[in-house]
Nucleic acid binder design. Structure first.
Lengths: 205, 205
DNA sequence: TGGCGGACTGACCGCCCGGTCGGAACCGGG
DNA sequence: CCCGGTTCCGACCGGGCGGTCAGTCCGCCA
């Protein structure tokens, strides 16, 4: 039944074993390149080599497919980043790790990231995706905490924490609009460079 | 004739005098809130209180409406920013002015900005909008030049210019995803704070 | 061996999409 | 007073959309 979809996760590459994984993977690819509205259920079915009806056997509607991709991607991002924070690093090291881990995540799960980041939300839909929003808030709360820790430790000056968090997130979130995989720098390296710029500043000394 | 549309510009608020201005204004509002695909020609006609056919009297198709908004907004952004660069300011002052002017522009022409920023491009459409892309490139070229000037003057350390430009643009471009007008800070002030963060850095001294 | 449940299909539904068309209403100039 | 042009409308079109449904196939377990 479609309810079993709950345990599935959309991998960036899928191995045809599990239909649902395949559907989520192809959908993420299509959503990322053509947008939610620009991707039809027929497109998804065709990309998977199955009938449109079968989509509705595994998911109740188009939005459930999208919601699974977005929720899965956001939750996994949070866990991915937390796993990569050095336990015993200095506070600035941990901020840097947050940024590079996010870059690495973007590189690894590109389609899912773009699909869940690109769409935007009218209020009713927002309510339907509140679990996803919760993970997003947790992720943003984490970077704010790391910045606050760095200030408390005396490593950062006393900047505006929410605003600084948004600066960091903006740099990371905007990457998908211009990054092309054939660049010489990986997203993780770009994130690290961003950290250097923001940490040390532009001012010559 | 529809060709006369060439001279029109979409204002953020419209004063019913010119039908085309009204159409462009309402369309920008709708595109900004519901997206391009999510906005139908019927929606636009209804918002303007006119028949759908009349839309096609003034514009050849839906894409022309969008293209006019996007081109107008992008070109005006470039001119708006250039006008506000202090002739005799120091190089860092000019970078700061670039950022605050962009924030002010965002505040003033919010719907047009969001509409032309939010949509994303498959390759064929990109070609149709090349004039718009030209202005966008000019705008990005400008911030890079300002950064280079600041480095040459010895005010900035020798950072990676394209990457630094993208950091600045990312901060500015991502604002529309979280900024709500009832905040205490104006977009211009936020942009100025971003400049302070990036210029002075986070590191405590 | 029989039957039951999950995987799967193709034909079909009503709706709304972007776009067209023929003509009405209006208005200034001869 | 009529003319030509501009502004505007309602009815209509083919097609693609998300979603439904009746039914087939097939492997597994009793």
């Amino acid at each position: 039944m479609a309810r079993a979809a709950v345990k599935a996760v959309a991998g960036e590459v899928n191995e045809n074993g599990d239909r649902m994984l395949q559907i989520l993977g192809e959908s993420a690819r299509l959503f990322a390149t053509k947008g939610y509205d620009g991707t039809s259920m027929r497109d998804i079915a065709e990309a998977c080599g199955i009938s449109k009806s079968l989509l509705y056997h595994h998911f109740v509607d188009k939005d459930e497919i999208y919601a699974r991709i977005a929720l899965g991607s956001t939750q996994r991002l949070y866990e991915f980043v937390v796993d990569r924070l050095p336990e015993n690093g200095t506070p600035p090291d941990r901020v840097r790790a947050f940024m590079t881990a996010t870059g690495d995540y973007f590189q690894r799960y590109r389609s899912n990231w773009i699909a869940s980041t690109a769409a935007f939300w009218s209020d009713p839909e927002l309510r339907r995706h509140k679990e996803r929003v919760m993970w997003r808030d947790r992720y943003e709360g984490l970077i704010r905490q790391l910045i606050q820790d760095a200030i408390d430790a005396g490593d950062f000056r006393a900047v505006d924490v929410p605003l600084t968090g948004r600066l960091v997130l903006s740099a990371l979130n905007w990457m998908h609009r211009w990054y092309r995989p054939d660049k010489d720098l990986t997203p993780g390296q770009i994130a690290e460079s961003y950290f250097d710029l923001i940490f040390n500043g532009l001012k010559a000394r």
